[in-house]
């Protein structure tokens, strides 16, 4: 048996924990990013939201708010809060490596 230490990735985050450079994000970071948010069991529904956050961000320049997620991601508001109890849009944006979605509603 041999043990290899792989280098730890340095990620630039802002003070709220959002990626400064969304292009740094890689899919294989998601489990570790989710674990930081207290989500240990990533389901397909989590992935659906995370992928939707990224595609919306790259299409529109800003991530969707909870209301927009509820209307367009295919996941209801109730379920969004079950998946991401600490705030669906905010937490999913951190895991998806995009800036914090802006919007009051």
């Amino acid at each position: 048996m041999s043990v290899v230490s792989l280098p730890v990735i340095d990620l630039a985050l802002n003070e709220e924990g959002f990626f400064l450079h969304p292009e740094d994000w890689r899919e294989d970071m998601v489990p570790a990013l989710a674990a930081r948010e207290g989500i240990d069991q990533l389901t397909d529904r989590h992935w659906q939201v995370i992928n939707f956050m990224r595609s919306e961000y790259f299409a529109k320049g800003t991530g969707p708010t909870v209301r927009v997620l509820g209307k367009t991601s295919g996941v209801s508001i109730k379920e969004l809060y079950q998946l991401f109890p600490k705030g669906p849009a905010k937490v999913a944006a951190r895991i998806a490596g995009i800036p914090k979605p802006r919007g009051c509603i």
Partner: peptide, 17 residues
């Protein structure tokens, strides 16, 4: 800006309200 590793984040209580 902070450089964070993929580790639990330690909110720096002394700097944040």
């Amino acid at each position: 800006m902070t450089t964070a590793l993929l580790q639990p984040h330690t909110e720096s209580a002394e700097f944040m309200p």
